[in-house]
Simulated scan of single mutants.
Amino acid sequence: MSQTFQLAACAEMLWLDKPRDWRVARLTEMGFGVGLWNWPELDLGKLERIGANYTIMNGYLEGRLADDVGADLLLESARETAQIGKRLGVDRLNLHGTGLGDGGIPIWQHETVTGNMWLKAQDTLNRICDLAEEEGVVFTLENLNLLDHPGCPFGSTADVLALVSAIDRPQLRINLDLYHTQIGEGDLIRWCEKCLPWIGEVQVADNPGRCEPGSGEVNYAAVARALNNMCYRGPVGMEAFAAGDPDDALEAFRSAFTL
């Protein structure tokens, strides 16, 4: 058996009683890449010195895709965040249809996305790609389930795929979060196939509970085999809590994605 995928885990959701730099160092020691959330909460100096492989980080602090004011805020925020990403060597900077508030609730909620909103979102993402090309970074757009994130525009897997494939530029990829896909649509393997040409990262957590693979209903070993068969060799990140001991949760994740 060998580790086919580049495995990473979100430092924000494990060892919650430990400082963030300790968590990053522990993940690195265990051979995992590291996912982060918002940079103002980070001690950048400490994180630089650890020498971790930072695979993904939130790529903005405010803004949204589908209106003029929100787009300008997003671009300004993304440009500032790109500098932090380059400082840490982050591989991908992550976006959503709109900024998320406490508990992941969208700040700007829309139950119906209009044609004009689609056009504006495409324009905004092309501007993001221009920025990314200028700065030498890559952004991803993440799908979100609408039970946990009600009213989030462009949250579904289908909407994210439609936007990223329409833009079709190397500076913008899909952060395919299979936890959200499981809740929103199911049919994980076929969504992986549909999104494959544009995937920048696959993220996983089991359902219910948003804990490590093997703690819920998803057959992640089968998903791993399918990804391998479709020749996906990119990063797989566990963005999940631990059902018990975090070290055990990470080893369960590693086992599910080792073929």
Rank of each mutant, 00 (worst) to 15 (best):
L100N: 06
C211G: 00
R233M: 07
R87W: 13
C195F: 03
N229I: 02
A132L: 04
I199Q: 05
P170M: 06
P19R: 04
V160T: 01
W37M: 08
D245Q: 03
G234R: 02
A256P: 06
Q109M: 13
M1C: 08
V160Q: 04
V236E: 00
G101N: 09
Y60S: 00
R64N: 07
R20I: 15
T28D: 05
S156P: 08
A9G: 11
G63D: 02
E133C: 04
E48K: 05
G35P: 07
T181W: 06
H110W: 13
L27H: 06
L95A: 09
A222E: 12
Y232P: 03
I189K: 14
V160M: 06
I105H: 03
G89V: 12
L75E: 01
D123M: 10
L73W: 13
I189S: 07
L161E: 02
N53H: 11
M30H: 02
S156G: 06
A242C: 03
G184I: 08
W15A: 10
W198K: 15
L141E: 01
R127G: 06
A224Q: 01
L16H: 14
M30V: 02
E111S: 14
G209R: 09
A25I: 06
D206G: 02
T140F: 05
A243M: 11
V34N: 01
L27A: 04
K86S: 14
I189V: 05
A252H: 13
S215T: 10
E12C: 06
K120R: 15
I167E: 05
G104T: 12
R92C: 10
D130P: 00
P170V: 00
K194Q: 13
T140Y: 07
L141P: 02
N228Q: 12
M230N: 12
T98L: 04
Q182Y: 01
N53S: 13
F139N: 00
C129E: 03
P40G: 05
L161F: 04
V223E: 10
T4G: 08
L93G: 07
V202E: 03
L188C: 01
N116R: 15
I84M: 15
L14W: 04
C129I: 00
G35M: 03
E193S: 14
R92Y: 12
T81L: 08
V218W: 03
H110P: 07
R233Y: 07
W108Q: 11
K194S: 13
D91N: 14
H96Y: 14
W191F: 11
A252T: 07
H180K: 11
V160Y: 01
A221Y: 02
A243W: 08
I183L: 11
A158R: 09
W22F: 13
A66V: 11
V236G: 04
S2H: 13
I105W: 00
D67W: 05
E193Y: 09
L73R: 15
R173S: 03
L74S: 01
C195M: 10
N207F: 07
L44K: 02
S2C: 12
M238D: 02
Q109F: 04
T55G: 07
V236L: 05
R190C: 09
F154E: 01
Q171V: 02
F253K: 09
P150H: 09
A78I: 11
A162R: 12
D91A: 15
N143L: 04
S215R: 01
R190W: 12
I174V: 14
V34L: 00
N229E: 14
L88F: 12
H110K: 15
A82N: 09
